[in-house]
Nucleic acid binder design. Structure first.
Lengths: 339, 339
DNA sequence: ATGAAAGCGCTAACAA
DNA sequence: TTGTTAGCGCTTTCAT
């Protein structure tokens, strides 16, 4: 079922030509204020909504943006990126076409081709975990914006969280609370997120004249890793009073081991996570202090910058934009008990 | 940047008319096999991809489906619905336009209007939590399919999980493991999910000649509710050996209270969740036995049925389809220890 | 300030 | 079997 009323009908009812209707409605051309208002009123009365497909075909501007993701769903973290992108898009009169490749790069190429066949004006290329990415060649000269990924070739603009700053603010928070013996629980597997957070931790500790162990465990950043790291920590560094975890899931593992060992959080062990993945950060008891990733902001900025790129405006952000993250103070950090 | 090569170019290179190219590529009309192959080869060589916007305008069929959600992101549960829809769509040569209203029904109406202006062929109207829904009037006569919601007016077709069956299989599993004193931990706030799961629990217990308490707590189904329910359970029904939780987050709360009380799972208390929300179900220790919701299947079926509806084929499913759910056996259920 | 007319790239009657 | 032609609903020169 297509649109009922078209531009011709509006023109007829308003007693003007379709040209005038088009100009009036798009605030273009030379139309007297009176005519403009009149046309707009008629259009509203008739419930006229322009057929976007027709206008896209004619104007060679679909106002469609492709959103290419490797995992929208499998991981719950990404949703806010899409929400941010969607909000910005709707403010700019754009529509998102979201596509999820489930990590299959062959499928991803086909999806991008489909998107291009739909005449999208540009593409957001989003990854779930901060990484160096190879942008598919088929994206070629189309306006593109990477999110949570940096173009290995150094060509396409990108938006990522400031991982080093994450490590810094978390560590600073622990130090300000009075901790001196702090450990960082993280992954063996290197990556932008791991490397940055660890660098932020180490730099901040050093600048405060402190040092603390970094426990690296194999596997992905889940509760299992957290349990493994916490177990090792308790065995090798029982003097530690606070831990900065790679993410909230690792923190969940720490809670489990701490509780089993009779260690009370935060009285005997302060814990900070990263992600602010609420089913966990707000589900843990006590609720978890953590650094929130700027998912929503990244989504918004991606669309804003992409639109600028498409319409040839200058880009206000640096090509590789790093977004600052915020500490969410909850109940898992306290001053260390005096020994 | 639009498509480089158009149908005219293919026609020229193949030495035929655009009509023949169109027919050959779409396997329509009367074209000799030889010509068809020849045209297809040329098209591939030139990397031709039809401009979907032009073909949509002409054929009055955009092959676009609107996906209207109240929360893609805020809750992580929904992603698999979209993935399922996307997979089915791609198999049928359709594209999804996903939109998230963040529970703002005014915004939702505007989003639907935008979708209709984009000439979507149909709309999937998905809710995050199984509910009775009022379908926006603006959807009117457009092909529509509800997901995780049933049309209050009884008009539009829908797809929901079989909540009663969820309660049944979970309870049966506990009974088969040897439990007799089983409680159901759920919400005060009524709703399709709560009511159905509870009904399934009660019916199954009754049919086995058993009865068990239902603990209802205020608030939403999160870990806080789980802690509250578990605390109450321990106080009022210490004889219970197994609990069926409203969802995985409630189960997380039960784990916390059990561990604090020195109750071992599953040796002293068996726990079953609902959702199979993996950061929790696989993050808990021991890993949680739970009933997986058919998110992916619902997404797929929504698109399949919608396409049938759009193209006027008969619908194989009942108007209000209920999808069966599966028990995921992990480590939180054991036989009750003999007293 | 307004309107006539020419397409955007494709599909589908209708002709040949 | 293949080609000619007329649009789909809108935007955009270019006249008036």
């Amino acid at each position: 079922m297509a649109q009922r009323v078209g531009i011709r009908e509006v023109a007829r009812q308003a007693g003007v030509s379709v040209t005038t209707v088009s100009h009036a409605l798009n605030d273009r051309g030379q139309v007297s204020a009176a005519t403009r208002e009149h046309v707009k009123r008629i259009a509203v009365e008739l419930g006229y909504a322009p057929n976007r497909i027709a206008s896209a075909l004619r104007s060679q501007r679909s106002r469609l943006i492709g959103f290419v993701s490797d995992e929208i769903a499998a991981t719950p973290f990404s949703g806010r990126v899409i929400t941010g992108a969607q909000d910005a898009a709707s403010e700019l009169g754009l529509m998102l076409m979201v596509v999820d490749s489930a990590r299959d790069s062959g499928l991803e190429e086909r999806q991008i081709d489909t998107l291009l066949a739909q005449q999208v004006d540009g593409v957001v290329y989003a990854r779930m975990f901060h990484q160096l990415a190879d942008v598919p060649a088929t994206l070629g000269a189309h306006p593109t914006m990477l999110v949570d990924a940096v173009d290995r070739a150094g060509v396409q603009p990108s938006i990522v969280p400031d991982e080093v700053q994450i490590g810094r603010i978390a560590t600073e928070h622990l130090i300000e609370a009075g901790h001196r013996r702090i450990a960082h629980l993280t992954l063996e597997q290197q990556g932008e997120a791991r490397d940055g957070r660890e660098a932020g931790f180490l730099a901040t500790m050093r600048e405060c004249g402190l040092s603390g162990p970094v426990i690296r465990v194999p596997g992905i950043g889940d509760a299992v890793a957290g349990r493994r790291a916490a177990t090792e920590l308790l065995r090798r560094h029982p003097e530690i009073t606070a831990v900065l975890c790679f993410n909230d899931q690792v923190a969940m593992g720490v809670y489990q081991v701490a509780q089993a060992a009779g260690l009370r959080i935060p009285q005997q062990l302060s814990v900070v996570g990263v992600d602010d993945f609420w089913p966990i950060s707000e589900g843990l008891d006590p609720v978890l202090t953590t650094v929130a990733l700027p998912h929503y902001a990244m989504g918004r900025l991606a669309i804003t910058r992409l639109e600028a790129l498409i319409s040839g405006q200058p880009d206000a952000s640096p090509r590789e934009a790093r977004l600052a993250c915020e500490l969410v103070r909850r109940a898992s950090v306290a001053s260390p008990s005096t020994p």
